[in-house]
């Protein structure tokens, strides 16, 4: 039997919320990385975390993306 914690995908974000969210810094559209549980802003180079289905749209809590 699979470990409940390790294998569980992160809780999904409410689609109605997903529809209206943009990057708070650049106001550009976000890419939803369902597996990682992150909302990615290419323009700002930031990945906003989603915790317990709640997107944390704060720049100082976001993960900086490595520059390609």
């Amino acid at each position: 039997m699979p470990d409940e914690d390790a294998a569980a995908p992160p809780p999904p974000i409410d689609p109605r919320l997903l529809e209206v969210l943009v990057c708070p810094l650049t106001k550009t559209t976000l890419i939803y990385d369902r597996a990682a549980g992150e909302l990615i802003s290419r323009a700002a180079g930031l990945a906003y975390p989603i915790r317990d289905g709640i997107p944390i749209m704060l720049a100082d809590e976001a993960r900086r993306l490595e520059t390609p």
């Binding site: 990057c23 106001k27 559209t29 709640i54 997107p55």
Partner: peptide, 28 residues
């Protein structure tokens, strides 16, 4: 939909909620 600066308040907002800073809102 709802937003709050505090994640704990957001969790109890009573609607789908994002954590957001009123000084940099994340809405289209």
């Amino acid at each position: 939909l709802a937003c709050d600066l505090s994640p704990l308040m957001a969790a109890g907002a009573g609607a789908p909620c994002a954590v957001a800073d009123e000084e940099a809102l994340p809405f289209a």
